[in-house]
Amino acid sequence: MKIGILLKEGPYNHQASDTAFKFAEAAIKKGHTVDAVFLYNDGVTNVTKLMDPPQDDRNIAARWSELSKKHGVEILACIAASKRRGISDDVLVEGSAITGLGTLTDIAIRNDRLVTFGD
């Protein structure tokens, strides 16, 4: 099955990003294709490489980057939401990109499921 994910909250403030990640991992492990994670609202701040959490905490941006590298999951931040929040190509972690809402429309169409995580 092909699954798209829509993530609407930023890292750390809410558990949404953690749940989305765990869900994506489990889906991939079960043999599903996680096609893309689309970041909206504050969700776009999931992929800034400027984040630098304490050593003993998870690095959420790095984790999304790893998922992209290992499993080809596209990590896509909405351009309008990114511009509002100071997220630009310069700060993106590897494996992530900025794109338009038209891409989310495509993701919704081409996947069997779109699962939203937010707050």
Binding site: Y40, L101, T105
Partner: peptide, 19 residues
């Protein structure tokens, strides 16, 4: 909160894609 405003932006774009 911004949820309704950005929700409306999403609706307008998706509508432009004739969904």
């Amino acid at each position: 909160t911004i949820y309704t405003y950005e929700g409306l932006e999403m609706i307008l774009i998706m509508a432009a894609y004739e969904q």
